[in-house]
Structure formats: structure tokens, C-alpha cells
């Protein structure tokens, strides 16, 4: 049944703002984004909100709902009681543009610094052969919808702007891992790059990123920890490093 929900939404811009209270109708089966849209259509036409697919596939509508980093389109209203005030605020780690929209360009700048996939010189298009079991490891990381909730929740940069230049964040660690585990990537220094240029060493594995990932990617266990372990291997044992590359080629 429909009811009137108490909603508290942050409104403002880069110069400041405040939480504003609204009462908005909620119907059965709705999610937070539906209610934000109704608020926009009926009471606050200029309420800024970023969204796109409304189906949990594009990663646009990231915000903090009652302080928890969430996709608004994937947060059902019936996970709150009808009496509860639902508070919606912009992602804290990124600068506010307006209302619920933040400037996420940090993530795109880090992506620009990430060395790209390097195709194998000896293979022509159409000649790539890879085993399903080998591509699956990287495919897990390529499920990433770039909602940047992991970047937002990571305490290395949350409230620590000073760490941002040296730290690329979980999103970029899984990109590094994805390329490192790509059966045919010809680049050979993914782990070293992650350690030396992306700030992998600053991560102390609290798994906050994994917890907020809407795609259920095992960011810490499957990407960060193996990368950290292998960085250690390589640093101390060049033969292990050489062997792993040769093995990878042979199995490809």
C-alpha cells in the first residue's frame, strides 16, 4: 500500500548546502530512485540526480542512503520502516557538483594513467585462442559497472584527499588484476605498476570495497590480495616471475 515517506535530501553545491526535509508518496515495490524522481517531478524540479538505466546495470545513481553507499535504483523502500526518515546524501569522497551529483573525474583521471591492454604481436585478429577457465578470472573484474562505490567507501581516500594523488583505488586495482590475469596481455609489469604507481601498498585489506560492490566482485580476495602476494614473489624471486609468464603463454 502507498504511504507518505519522510525523506531528507542533501541540497546544495560546492559552496555548501544542507539537508532538506520532504514528504513524498511511496508505492508498493518502489526503490529510492523512484521516490527521488517523484520528488523531482512534483516538488523540486531542479533537484540534481545522476541516473541512467534504472536497472542496476550502468552504475550512475550512486549515493549514500542513510550513510551507506548504495545504488539508488537497487535500494528498495521497504527495507526501511514507514516511520523511518530516509536520508539521501551525495558520495562523500568526491566533490559535490550539485545536490546528489558529485564530480567523479578522479576515477577517469586514474583510468587515463592505467597502461592499456597490449595485444600480442604474433597474433592477428581472429587468431586469439583462450580457455574459458582462463578468461573467467578477468571476466569477474570486467563485470564492474563503474559505480565508484568502492572508491567512495575506501578509507584511504574517504576523508583523505591528500592520498588521492598516490592512490588509484579498488576500481583501478581490479583493472590491474584483470589485465594481469588476461591470458593474452603482452605487458609484463602490471603488478609492479600497481605497487609503485597506483598505491596498492596503501591498501590494508579491510574489505570495505568488496562489501559495497553491487556486482558482488570479490575485489579484495580475488584481485588485491593475489596482486599483493605476487608483487612479493616477483620482488624476491625472478625465476618465479619468469616461470609464471612462460606457463601463462604455454597454457593460453
Amino acid at each position: 500500500m502507498g504511504y507518505d515517506a519522510k525523506l531528507r535530501v542533501w541540497r546544495g553545491d560546492d559552496e555548501g548546502g544542507e539537508l532538506k526535509d520532504f514528504t513524498v508518496e511511496v508505492n508498493e515495490g518502489e526503490v529510492v530512485l523512484d521516490v527521488i524522481h517523484r520528488l523531482q517531478a512534483t516538488q523540486a524540479p531542479d533537484l540534481a540526480v545522476r541516473w541512467n538505466c534504472k536497472a542496476g546495470k550502468c552504475g550512475s545513481c550512486s549515493a549514500e542512503v542513510n550513510g551507506r553507499p548504495r545504488l539508488m535504483c537497487m535500494t528498495r523502500m521497504n527495507t526501511f520502516t514507514e516511520q523511518e526518515t530516509v536520508t539521501v546524501t551525495p558520495l562523500r569522497t568526491f566533490p559535490v557538483v550539485r545536490d546528489l551529483v558529485t564530480d567523479v573525474s578522479f576515477n577517469y583521471e586514474k583510468a587515463l594513467e592505467m597502461p592499456a591492454f597490449q595485444p600480442p604481436a604474433e597474433l592477428k585478429p581472429g587468431e586469439y585462442r583462450m580457455a574459458q577457465v582462463d578468461v573467467e578470472r578477468s571476466q569477474e573484474f570486467r563485470k564492474c559497472i563503474e559505480c565508484f562505490l568502492c572508491q567512495n567507501t575506501c578509507h584511504v581516500v574517504r576523508d583523505h584527499d591528500e592520498n588521492k594523488p598516490a592512490f588509484s583505488g579498488p576500481r583501478m586495482f581490479i583493472r590491474a588484476a584483470e589485465l594481469d590475469m588476461h591470458p593474452l596481455d603482452a605487458a609484463e609489469n602490471r603488478k609492479e605498476f600497481a605497487q609503485e604507481s597506483q598505491g596498492l601498498g596503501m591498501c590494508n585489506i579491510t574489505k570495505c570495497c568488496t562489501e559495497v560492490c553491487p556486482e558482488g566482485i570479490h575485489i579484495t580476495d580475488n584481485a588485491i590480495i593475489p596482486m599483493k602476494e605476487r608483487v612479493v614473489d616477483r620482488k624476491y624471486d625472478p625465476l618465479v616471475w619468469l616461470g609464471s609468464k612462460i606457463f601463462k603463454r604455454a597454457g593460453a
Binding site: 591492454f117 595485444p119 585478429p125 586469439y128 580457455a131 578468461v135 570486467r142
Partner: peptide, 10 residues
């Protein structure tokens, strides 16, 4: 797309 790094199912 494979030469750009795409990973299709096999």
C-alpha cells in the same frame, strides 16, 4: 574488439 582486450565467452 579482442585486440582491444575484450574477453568473450569461449
Amino acid at each position: 574488439l579482442e585486440t582491444y582486450g575484450a574477453l568473450f565467452d569461449r
